[in-house]
């Protein structure tokens, strides 16, 4: 997950950097799986396979989630640099 170089710009120590990366990974992993399942896989279980439509939807969902994550990171970094956010 990219923080828009948030870490470097605010000069946090490397171990905080680690911990940030670790936690980010954990939260995003759970959130993206749950979110895209809800968006793309309807809870009618005709069989145990992902069909074509579901598979394509998941691919796009991950790409869009990734894009939103980047955007939010850049936005928060920009606001932090302007001192608007504590």
């Amino acid at each position: 997950m990219n923080f828009g170089n948030f870490g470097q710009q605010t000069q946090v120590q490397s171990n905080v950097n680690m911990s940030m990366a670790e936690q980010e990974l954990e939260m995003v992993t759970t959130f993206i799986v749950d979110s895209c399942y809800r968006k793309c896989v309807p809870p009618k279980y005709q069989d145990g396979e992902l069909n074509k439509g579901e598979s394509v939807c998941i691919d796009r969902c991950v790409a869009k989630y990734f894009e939103v994550n980047m955007k939010v990171g850049q936005k928060l970094t920009a606001q932090a640099n302007q001192g608007q956010l504590r």
Binding site: Q23, K39, Y65
Partner: peptide
């Protein structure tokens, strides 16, 4: 720092849930 990360992850998740519902394309 933890709060910042939780805010960040929750922000992404909520805004994705509220704003992204069209999966006919892979770009926002």
């Amino acid at each position: 720092m933890k709060d910042f990360l939780r805010l960040y992850a929750n922000l992404v998740d909520r805004c994705f849930a509220d704003c992204v519902n069209d999966f006919t394309s892979k770009a926002l």
